[in-house]
């Protein structure tokens, strides 16, 4: 079992390193670089040499990785020129993490909705995050306006103000995150399918015949873990869109700004953080499955 857990850990580390490598290679293959901004080719060569840009890509990739591993994510060029990336992303990351933590119970609840609501979940969930968020914002604003017109509410703009951490707004954002772009529909479908397979299994039938306990919480958790952790990349992608529409100054917001401003050190650092989050959550989920399921404890 220890070997199996170590293998999982190695896999997670490999995923993060691989993601860093892919990001860097993708950036380096693009034409043009910082030194090309200088008109004189001789000066550009000198600058390239000084900045280490003339070394082969793999060398620079591992150099960057080594820096990242020691906690140095680089410097923001454009979003907040000169500021260390780590300082820039700290606060936004916390805000986004808060959103994700709130979205988790919503996702669990969605996955356990009864069968007759399934088609509705799939239909609503087919709305892309931007459209769902847009409709929610518009709907909330319209109802706030109606409430103010009727005199029930006297604080205009309680919802639409940017940067205000209003609990209603945060809750709505979490729901949109857990539902939109098929996240909710896929969760529900996958869970329903897994639950049906469990109920139809021979050992559940035997338990019913023999009046012994059937599939219990361990089976349910084993089924739910990969379903929930598998949706995480989609949810993280949804964060970028959601934060733009809901005007939340989170990691997705910063990533968007960095991409618009071609602030690559910042954008790549956030891409790497996303990969690391996915790898870590997958590692935790898979390790929990290894602990619970004796079949997974042996190396293949």
């Amino acid at each position: 079992m220890t070997l199996r857990l170590l293998a999982q850990l190695a896999r997670a580390l490999g995923t993060v390193l691989g993601a860093a490598f892919l990001l860097l290679v993708g950036l380096e293959l693009a034409p043009g670089g910082p030194a090309d901004l200088v008109a004189d080719p001789a000066v550009a060569d000198v600058l390239s040499a000084r900045w280490g840009l003339d070394r082969p890509i793999p060398v620079r990739a591992f150099d960057w990785l080594a820096r990242v591993l020691t906690g140095d994510l680089g410097t923001s060029w454009a979003y907040r020129p000169g500021a260390p990336v780590w300082e820039v992303v700290q606060g936004p990351l916390q805000r986004t993490a808060g959103l994700l933590v709130l979205a988790f119970p919503v996702a669990v609840m969605l996955a356990s909705l009864p069968r007759r609501l399934g088609s509705l979940v799939v239909l609503v969930s087919a709305l892309p995050v931007f459209l769902l968020a847009h409709l929610v914002v518009e709907g909330a604003n319209a109802s706030a306006w109606a409430a103010m017109s009727a005199g029930w509410l006297d604080r205009p703009g309680w919802f639409a103000l940017p940067g205000v951490d209003h609990p209603v707004r945060t809750a709505l954002a979490a729901v949109v995150l857990a539902v939109g772009s098929n996240v909710g529909g896929d969760l529900w479908t996958d869970m329903q399918r897994a639950r049906d397979a469990l109920q139809r299994s021979d050992f559940a039938a035997v338990a019913r015949v023999h009046d012994t306990p059937g599939p219990g919480w361990k089976h349910a958790v084993l089924v739910a873990l990969p379903v929930l952790s598998g949706r995480l990349p989609m949810v993280l992608g949804g964060c970028v869109v959601l934060e733009r529409v809901f005007l939340v100054n989170g990691a997705g917001w910063v990533l968007w700004e960095a991409a618009m401003a071609r602030d690559f050190e910042l954008a790549m650092a956030l891409g790497l953080v996303a990969a690391a989050v996915v790898a870590t959550v997958t590692l935790v989920a898979e390790s929990a499955r290894v602990l619970l399921d004796p079949r997974l404890r042996e190396l293949p």
């Binding site: 050992f203 015949v209 399921d293 004796p294």
Partner: peptide, 22 residues
């Protein structure tokens, strides 16, 4: 009140339980 011996022995056993638990 009948007990059951299903056709597929392996699939009829709960994969998470040891033999002495069943």
């Amino acid at each position: 009140g009948a007990a059951w011996l299903p056709q597929d022995g392996l699939r009829s056993l709960d994969p998470l339980l040891r033999v002495r638990e069943v």
